[in-house]
Design a protein around this nucleic acid. Sequence first.
DNA 1: TACAACATCACCATTTGTGGTGATATCTAA
DNA 2: TTAGATATCACCACAAATGGTGATGTTGTA
Lengths: 224, 224
Amino acid sequence: MEGEKIKIHLADDHQVLIDGLLAVLRLEQKFEVVGFSLNGNALLERIQENKADVLIMDINMPERDGIEVLREFNEKGYPCKVIILSSYEDVKLIKEVLKLGAHGFLAKNCAGENIAEAIETVYKGEKYFSDSIRDKILGAFSGVKTEVAESTDKYFLGAIDSITDRELEILKLIAQECSGQEIGDRLGISKNTVESHRKNLIKKLKVKNSIGLVKLAMRYNLVN
Amino acid sequence: MEGEKIKIHLADDHQVLIDGLLAVLRLEQKFEVVGFSLNGNALLERIQENKADVLIMDINMPERDGIEVLREFNEKGYPCKVIILSSYEDVKLIKEVLKLGAHGFLAKNCAGENIAEAIETVYKGEKYFSDSIRDKILGAFSGVKTEVAESTDKYFLGAIDSITDRELEILKLIAQECSGQEIGDRLGISKNTVESHRKNLIKKLKVKNSIGLVKLAMRYNLVN
DNA sequence: TACAACATCACCATTTGTGGTGATATCTAA
DNA sequence: TTAGATATCACCACAAATGGTGATGTTGTA
């Protein structure tokens, strides 16, 4: 046989990106796009029916984001391979989705040809990462920060990665417009402790105040 | 003659989106993509050489954003028509880019076929907007808010639009992590006045504190 | 003209946030 | 076992933000 095409499902809230991917993937005979979804809920409803082999999915989607979809996949045990397509190249995020069973991670600034490569690779059960992501993973692994300091964003990546779980938890609540007191109450710890964490975050992320924290958190999708 | 192709330049920091657009546009014989850029600076360097008729550009780009590029265009007086491709459908943003001479505005969640339509329309010198954008403009014009309350974001659009120039100015400085005092000094007004504006913003945007303000501002790209 | 919207400022009380120092307990990795 | 990282908490002082009320001048428009 071997004439079987690889069945693909696309999920992204930007219709143009889907149209673009469709056009790119149609150029290859070995692929067949069997469906696409504009948000996480729609995706979860349709993915059962059309039996896709590979899902290419954005992290940021309305209704349910990519992380939630991956979690659902784990519970239900779908055999479908997942490639994450994301604007954000945060190491923590990459770690997270890999832990959740994703097979590939593509930065949105990767070339179109990488997509085909990625699909074939993960279809075989191997992992695939676009170049910049591979660099980040290696850097994070060896403890050496990737020295591509072309943008200030990159500069922060190391620091972002050093946020502890507890700090992240508090950062999320700060971003939800909670006061230190409220955060303390919710987590069952003292307001003083919350403020300690806040100060540590401000120092290690080199921002001026909580607003700086929230901006970074949003830029790296550490918060919803 | 009439066999002349429309020369197009693409600008977006997401390579996949560019590849997608390339694939979509290649399907039509009447278009010729003469170049693309991944950021505002690169765009401004290249746009002179390849004499594009139409530029399709994202607002959010590194180095220089779409707004800055439009400003530069106005100073230099390039004859090229500009179509903005944006994730954000904020009325203020649309007004802004139109004021700066953009000929079209497409939401990124529009269909691929709209792109071709948009290019042909603006090439003739007319304006083009994708459906959702057209709705927003009409709504803003008639003073009636578009009643598509499918997401909480949409709910805020009216309020966002009611931000005054002065308030926006102050909001931007708040987002830059300035204190009320600093903002007052910079604008040459009293700290008290700054706090008045801040309080008005918090009230009209229905958020809990300055962090809520900054989150909204970022979501709608009111700040850099 | 008169009203509404805007920008300006003041004063108040109270809560929050920032910055610093220092301390304790736990856990992990060298 | 020892050093480092993490999480916890306290206390202090000061700056900043929030919430309220009230007031003034300008400007544009009905």
